[in-house]
């Protein structure tokens, strides 16, 4: 702890130096040979085309917060600190063994107090899962399967890819032209409009329309990898999909509306895990799951 503080103190001055770089940085332009300048112009144009992919962890963090704030307008978190803490321990531990363990502020998990069966993952790792879905799980491995699937969406930046490209490029070009100055009130407005549009794209895709079938299969494949690495049976994902398949249809807005048919997903996952051995849950895993979620 002491060390952390020391590190922070020592670095504050360095950080300020780094953040004020852009203004001085312009001076270095004179060192760039002409042909390089040309290629940089080309790259800037190229970077406009893939502006969404280029969203930094910090940009994704703000989008993820707004996405969460939007979902939480109509659905509230469960009032159960033990359950919330447990789902964060499990989810953050799984994220640690994923291919994308680090986002701007780290992965966070929340249980929404609704019988609805669904899960939503915002950019930067803001993952919201409904009580209805948590209650559909029988053990830690199955809950891990659900969280690992959502972590897969975040790691693959599916949310960010759902944002229409012109949302960002317009604002980036309009405001980015003079890189050294701070935003004026009109520019903040323009950037906020781009932000608002991006959040609308996120919620429309994730909550209303759902991702494409291939996108869901990709997240399932990532979930299998994460479950293996964390030492859980990837068969737990199949078990969860079977639960979804057994759910009565037409029970309001649910995971069925935004995801491919469970059987299609089961077939795909089975191909991936045919050689995986079954892993028995440890007594600790069994008891901590029951202790944390028993009161839900």
């Amino acid at each position: 702890m002491k060390l952390t503080l020391l590190v922070r103190l020592a670095i504050v001055s360095v950080s300020f130096g780094a953040l004020s770089l852009p203004a001085h940085a312009l001076d270095f332009g004179s060192l760039i040979p002409d042909n390089k300048t040309l290629s940089l112009v080309g790259r800037s144009a190229d970077s406009l085309n893939k502006a969404n992919q280029d969203l930094t962890p910090l940009q994704q963090y703000y989008l993820g917060r707004a996405f969460g704030a939007t979902i939480l307008q109509s659905r509230k978190p469960v009032d159960n600190p033990d359950a919330l803490r447990y789902v964060n321990f499990l989810g953050q531990a799984l994220a640690l063994v994923s291919d994308q363990p680090e986002t701007y502020s780290g992965y966070r998990f929340l249980i929404l107090d609704t019988p609805e069966v669904n899960a939503f993952s915002g950019p930067g790792g803001f993952i919201l899962i409904t009580k209805g879905l948590v209650k559909l799980t029988h053990n830690e491995a199955e809950l891990a399967a659900v969280l690992a699937h959502e972590i897969g969406h975040v790691a693959l930046e599916h949310g960010v890819k759902a944002i229409q490209k012109n949302r960002l490029t317009g604002a980036w070009v309009g405001i980015g032209a003079d890189a050294a100055k701070t935003l004026g009130p009109d520019e903040v407005k323009q950037m906020t409009a781009a932000f608002e549009g991006s959040v609308t794209d996120l919620t429309t895709t994730i909550v209303n329309k759902g991702y494409s079938r291939d996108t869901e299969f990709e997240a399932d494949a990532r979930a299998v990898t994460v479950l293996r690495r964390a030492g859980y049976s990837p068969q737990a994902l199949v078990a969860m999909l079977q639960e979804l398949k057994a759910m009565p249809q037409g029970a309001g807005p649910s995971i069925a509306k935004t995801h491919p048919a469970p059987q299609d997903r089961i077939d795909r996952v089975m191909k991936l895990i045919s050689k995986d051995p079954l892993v028995t849950l440890s007594p600790t895993e069994v008891s901590r799951y029951q202790t944390a979620l028993g009161g839900l």
Partner: peptide
Amino acid sequence: KAGAQTSGASSTEVSLAGRGFSEEVE
């Protein structure tokens, strides 16, 4: 540094310079 001299359209440059989506925008 280099990009800033040209069109300034790279989002990396925008964000690392404290631009783009920020606390102010939030």
